[in-house]
Simulated assay, not measured.
Amino acid sequence: MQRFEVFTGAGRRRDWPSEVKASIVAESFAGRETVCAVARRHALSPSQLFTWRRALRKQCEERGVTLPAVPGFVPAVVEAQPADAPVQTGKHSKKRRRSKEPAIELEIADVVVKIGRGADTGVIAAVIEALKATR
């Protein structure tokens, strides 16, 4: 008796028509989904789609055309407290009321999420993932 393996899948290189490639790359630049999600939906490797995007950027740079900037980190805005605001010490009074204002505000795609002090990190992560999925 001999052992053999059966490989399933494409088994060969796919040849993507340039129109289809352009459509997939444009979809990845739209910003509604992550590049990986677009690649997954089209049965592509994310690295292949990143390579196509890089090639497009290079072609555009050679022609003097500028593509939209890839969104990166957003700036954090820290609001200074007024000078006359009371300074808190390390000890907390049991009768002290917590502020009604949120500790963190996130704005993602025109949706504002206000996170209060002591919120569960798992819930926060789930909310952020849900917002990302709706983009």
Rank of each mutant, 00 (worst) to 15 (best):
L49R: 01
L49C: 04
T51G: 09
W52H: 11
W52P: 04
R54W: 05
A55T: 07
A55E: 09
L56P: 03
L56Q: 10
L56F: 05
L56A: 13
L56M: 11
R57S: 15
R57G: 13
R57K: 14
R57H: 10
K58G: 10
K58T: 11
Q59W: 03
Q59R: 12
Q59G: 07
C60H: 14
E61M: 08
E62S: 11
E62F: 03
E62C: 05
E62W: 02
E62Y: 01
E62I: 02
R63H: 08
R63Q: 10
G64K: 14
G64S: 13
V65Y: 09
T66V: 07
L67I: 06
L67F: 06
L67Y: 07
L67R: 07
P68Q: 01
P68I: 00
A69K: 13
A69L: 11
V70K: 12
V70G: 08
V70D: 09
V70I: 10
V70T: 12
P71A: 02
P71L: 01
G72F: 05
G72S: 07
G72Q: 06
V74F: 07
P75H: 06
A76H: 04
A76I: 13
V77N: 01
V77W: 01
V77I: 08
V77R: 03
V77D: 02
V77K: 02
E79A: 14
E79I: 13
A80Y: 04
A80K: 08
Q81C: 10
A83D: 10
A83R: 14
D84V: 05
D84K: 07
D84F: 06
D84M: 07
A85P: 00
P86A: 15
P86H: 11
P86S: 15
V87G: 07
V87I: 11
V87Q: 11
V87N: 06
Q88M: 05
T89S: 14
T89P: 04
K91Q: 12
K91N: 12
K91V: 14
K91G: 11
H92A: 15
H92S: 14
S93V: 04
K94H: 05
K95M: 11
K95C: 06
K95A: 15
K95T: 14
R96L: 04
R96I: 01
R96G: 03
R97P: 02
R98Y: 05
R98S: 15
S99W: 00
S99N: 10
S99Y: 00
K100L: 13
K100C: 09
K100E: 12
K100N: 09
E101C: 09
E101S: 13
E101G: 07
A103W: 07
I104K: 03
E105W: 03
E105K: 12
E105L: 15
L106N: 00
L106C: 02
E107R: 05
E107A: 07
E107H: 03
E107L: 08
I108P: 01
I108G: 01
I108A: 02
A109V: 11
A109Y: 14
D110V: 01
V111Q: 03
V111M: 03
V112K: 06
V112I: 12
K114E: 05
I115A: 02
I115W: 00
G116D: 04
R117Y: 10
R117F: 10
R117L: 10
R117I: 09
A119N: 00
D120T: 04
